[in-house]
Design a protein around this nucleic acid. Structure first.
Lengths: 202, 202
DNA sequence: GATTAAGTGTCTACTAGTTAGACACTTATG
DNA sequence: CATAAGTGTCTAACTAGTAGACACTTAATC
């Protein structure tokens, strides 16, 4: 079997990816509003024409970067790092670990959260995405069937998790993924809960 | 004036650069000897044919990565970060600062020093390059014309600097470039010296 | 307020870099 | 021993990327 074909669409994405990497670096260097299209193509060694083949302007380009990364984050939950993930036992649980490993893998991007003049929408949409994942992809079961308002509970735990993520990112990913996950679990333990992964089929 | 032309050779290097980045990442992930050509092109989203257009095999490719980075290191010394560099005064001096900033800028590559099954030749040639720079591009003048064996002296200070670099790299570049440079200077201060940059002429 | 300089967005014709695919060959893995 | 995976090489075909020019808009400078 000969599976060395990169589909055309995949190939087309290569240039986009390189341009995106350039944007990330340039935002860190000089701030989003100071970055020009010319800066981007120079940094990534492309012709300015090439940029306009792929994107109408800097704004839509930046939006594409943002949504592609946040969509990737959502999708990552369903792609377990540890195969055969089960309901939370006492150790690492697959679903939230996937979020963490996705962020770590793309830390170059998520470090943009540390910057002021950064990707428009990032500071707002990142926590919203975390919440969305908790709402749509996780279910919680109280231990002794103690009744809780699940909507509030999810919001509470999602933002708690977000707070820990923020700290992890701000400190330059000092602790390892594994250590970080354990921290998260330890803290979540203090709440009544039992986490289960839903998956895509309801 | 229209200066948006990337010269042909520059453009040709773009693909090479992307392949090199892929190699760096893959060495970190699975070790040099486990990396295949197929891994590299898959990671960088190129066709396998493309690789062989640029390089005869993985070995020469790896060599190209190594020498290009070390040559870049040598060349960086002559490209002052701070314009108008002078003889060492009491603050940052340009020549060694350039080495540091080059390493930091390319930390992705130099982090390979932290790995065991890494780029062949790196662990040997990196310190040799530091020494070469000290020998060829720096001159030292003893303060009160105290006689020293300059060959030994350069070797001694070069390897001292190398030791500090190693530590900086191993600890994930925790301290900033500026702080690191100051550390270096503080330590070098304990020796009889006055450092001067030679440059390319003579 | 006029004058540079730098960036934007669009469009063309061209080509060099990249691709798919097939080939025979060589390691590994079970 | 056999299956699977990777290597190195070559061709014909393509398309993604290029140079260059255009009119236009800002932003800074005198």
């Amino acid at each position: 079997m000969n599976n060395e074909q990169n589909t055309t669409s995949q190939r087309q994405n290569r240039t986009k990816d390189h341009l995106k990497q350039a944007l990330i670096e340039l935002i860190k260097e000089k701030g989003y509003h100071s970055v020009t299209v010319k800066n981007i193509v120079d940094y990534a060694s492309y012709n300015r024409s090439t940029f306009y083949i792929h994107y109408p302007d800097k704004i839509e380009f930046a939006e594409d970067l943002l949504v592609s990364m946040l969509q990737g984050l959502e999708a990552s939950v369903g792609k377990p790092y540890i195969p055969g993930h089960k309901v939370y036992t006492a150790k690492l649980n697959a679903p939230s670990f996937n979020i963490v490993s996705y962020i770590y893998k793309n830390r170059n991007f998520f470090e943009l959260l540390n910057y002021d003049d950064t990707l428009p929408g990032l500071h707002i949409q990142f926590p919203q995405t975390i919440l969305k994942i908790y709402k749509e992809q996780f279910i919680f079961e109280t231990i002794n069937n103690i009744p809780v308002n699940m909507d509030y509970f999810k919001r509470y735990t999602a933002y708690g998790f977000y707070g820990l993520l923020q700290n992890w990112i701000q400190n330059g990913f000092k602790v390892s993924q594994e250590e970080f996950i354990e921290e998260v679990i330890d803290l979540t333990k203090t709440h009544i809960y039992s986490l289960k992964y839903i998956g895509n089929n309801s």
